[in-house]
Deep mutational scan, measured.
Amino acid sequence: MSIQHFRVALIPFFAAFCLPVFAHPETLVKVKDAEDQLGARVGYIELDLNSGKILESFRPEERFPMMSTFKVLLCGAVLSRVDAGQEQLGRRIHYSQNDLVEYSPVTEKHLTDGMTVRELCSAAITMSDNTAANLLLTTIGGPKELTAFLHNMGDHVTRLDRWEPELNEAIPNDERDTTMPAAMATTLRKLLTGELLTLASRQQLIDWMEADKVAGPLLRSALPAGWFIADKSGAGERGSRGIIAALGPDGKPSRIVVIYTTGSQATMDERNRQIAEIGASLIKHW
């Protein structure tokens, strides 16, 4: 067993022997301040990774656009098919120029040779490549099948209805392509620590998230040296922004954090800054 596999296998073990965790309302004060600064709703939840206990939450059962955070769930569904012998990570998928959609920095470079399922998941999570996500959605049967996968996990809230990039439209009061912070946090925890996926697939999923290259201005910008984070960000229309993450000190994750916002007129930089400040408060009061 590799060191990384050992780390993920012992996530519940280490967490069980940690000192009790206590909620700190100071972080919620910052979440509410972010709402004021952005002029928009902000949803927040913080779960203990081992027990699933909610440590703090704000608007945990209000719907927010998922945006690209759905790509972690998508690759979880792909990995479940791999575990069941219905898919192979090494299978190569070929596609054409007509398949390319807006923001496809990886797939646009491989029109000639195609990409493997493993490479597509890596591109979808680490670079948020939209064509990679659409190609992977095709392998599982489309958005409705991802929703069905989530329902089978016990998540009857999260739903995907459309493809990239239309799913980022974020129309107010439109339930399409949305989740709730509580539902997303619980589902992410199941994917990373539950028995739904094999140990190898859980490790692969967290490795992809740990290698995320496009979430630097968010929670990662607030992390002290030595902290662990595996995350996936999302951005959408109407001032929408979000991030889902597993993080913790001492090089291992111990909490799940989900943050979503929508309806702001603020710039992307300002949305990023507010999420980073929430992260800084979380870490300060850990």
Rank of each mutant, 00 (worst) to 15 (best):
G236T: 11
D33G: 07
W286Y: 06
L73P: 13
E175D: 10
E175L: 11
L150H: 05
A183H: 14
H285T: 08
L137F: 14
P224C: 05
T193H: 15
M209G: 03
G216K: 13
M209T: 00
E56T: 10
L89K: 04
D174S: 12
N98V: 07
S51D: 15
A40I: 05
R63C: 06
T261S: 13
R92H: 11
P172Y: 08
T107C: 13
V214C: 11
A133I: 03
A183S: 13
L199Q: 07
N50P: 08
L136Q: 00
D99P: 05
K71W: 00
L160A: 08
E277S: 07
E237K: 12
P143D: 03
P143L: 05
P181H: 00
E164H: 00
K53W: 13
G216Q: 13
P181K: 01
A185Q: 00
M184E: 01
H110W: 14
K53V: 14
K30D: 04
L120G: 03
A245I: 02
G52A: 13
N98P: 07
L100D: 02
K32T: 13
A245L: 04
A246M: 10
E169T: 09
L282P: 01
H285G: 09
E145P: 10
P249M: 12
Q97A: 11
K109L: 11
K32M: 13
L247K: 01
D161K: 03
M184V: 09
R63T: 12
L120N: 01
L79K: 00
I229G: 00
D174C: 10
P172K: 11
A170V: 12
T158D: 01
E87I: 11
L79D: 00
G226M: 10
T179E: 01
S240R: 00
L205Y: 00
D83S: 07
S281K: 15
E35C: 04
K252Q: 07
E169W: 08
S57G: 07
D113L: 13
V72F: 03
A34W: 06
N98Y: 11
S51R: 07
E195K: 09
V31F: 02
E175H: 14
N272M: 03
A124W: 03
F58Q: 11
E87P: 03
L247H: 00
G85I: 05
P249L: 11
A246R: 02
R41H: 12
D99Q: 08
H285Q: 15
I93G: 01
N152P: 05
A235W: 02
D155T: 01
A84Q: 13
M66D: 01
T139I: 13
A133H: 02
I259D: 00
L247Q: 00
T267G: 11
T107I: 05
D33K: 07
D113Q: 09
G114R: 04
E270Q: 05
A170H: 11
L146T: 05
E145C: 12
P25F: 12
D83G: 06
S240T: 08
E210W: 09
W227A: 01
S201M: 15
D269W: 10
R189P: 02
L55D: 04
T138Q: 14
E175P: 12
R271A: 13
S122G: 13
S254E: 09
G242R: 01
G39Q: 13
V257F: 05
E26W: 15
Q88V: 14
V117C: 04
R162Y: 01
L188D: 01
D207H: 12
E145M: 12
D250M: 07
T126P: 03
A280E: 12
T187I: 11
P60V: 12
T131I: 02
T112H: 14
H94F: 08
G90Q: 12
V258L: 07
I125V: 07
D129T: 01
V31H: 01
G52Y: 05
P249D: 11
T112A: 13
W227S: 00
